[in-house]
Design a protein around this nucleic acid. Structure first.
Lengths: 151, 151
DNA sequence: AACATTATCTGCTTCTATGCAGATATTAGC
DNA sequence: GCTAATATCTGCATAGAAGCAGATAATGTT
């Protein structure tokens, strides 16, 4: 953070991240689930099919806890267990494309407020932001792995 | 989301938010606290002094649960209770400027990976990003309030 | 001065996520 | 085919967060 323009970013960015995570926690509470459950569902939706073990690795839970996690999600109809035909020990888990939980409603305020922020941007700014998000996403995932390994 | 450039953003952004929140959860776990506790501490650090009641409102907890929250944070030396001289029923809570918990270490990977993303940006792009974060932060806080009220 | 209101704290209870260790089922290696 | 390794599941135990209702203390209101 030596460049002068990065200075200001260094002050703004932590507050921003704090707000994003707090919003995530509030959203989970609004739909009546724990944060882990909600964001594991997101992970499944974005990543696609995944074995129980992979999900355990991504969430940082033990395999036992992950079984229970999947149970909870399945009970709510958010997720489906599919036996892996190639290896019948394994269970593939996939997100169901239904909002059985009112997540859309819970995210409505964020969509509205953030939408307003984005709409007022020029096409060029949107391009810059989109590219940033695209690059930041894997960076966060790598950071997650690194943090978990550091224990 | 009608503009063509917003289309792509709409696909990228949810994944990005998911990654940010997951990283927040992993960080909390790494420092051995619950997500609420960690991000309440952040809120205190950024907002400055705050009464117990205000903190309760910001976290969405009851006042009783907030008392316990402050107890936990105080025990870890992250926070200090200061009696309000103007109104002695009230307790002001303020963040202590010490990293008694290894948060800096836990955030190191994110700083590194994200730092790499930012450093490769032009000054103009950094300006765009900084401005966006500045505007998105209050938007998220408003969304949090809206979600809480909607219950 | 008496009463109502507000702010925080405490005792108690509950709920739920998680870990751990062992069970079960399947595959892989020799 | 027998043994070892792997993947998921189950039983049990625990810890910890959070709610609720009542207690305490301070302020404001008439």
């Amino acid at each position: 953070m030596s460049r002068p323009d990065l200075e200001r970013l260094g002050a703004v960015y932590p507050r921003y991240l704090n707000a994003v995570v707090l919003h995530g926690l509030a959203t989970a509470q609004a739909v009546g689930m724990g944060p882990t459950d909600l964001y594991a569902t997101g992970t499944l939706a974005f990543h696609g099919r995944m074995t129980s073990g992979e999900l355990a690795a991504k969430t940082g839970l033990t395999t036992g806890a992950t079984t229970r996690l999947i149970d909870r999600l399945e009970q709510r109809g958010l997720v489906r267990r599919v036996p892996d035909p190639a290896d019948r020990r394994r269970v593939l888990v996939e997100a169901v494309a239904t909002d059985a939980i009112g997540l859309d409603d819970a995210l409505a305020p964020a969509r509205e407020k953030l939408g307003a922020v984005f709409v007022s941007c020029s096409a060029e700014e949107i391009a810059t932001l989109t590219e940033h998000f695209e690059r930041a996403t894997p960076a966060f995932h790598e950071a997650i792995e690194a943090v978990r390994e550091a224990e």
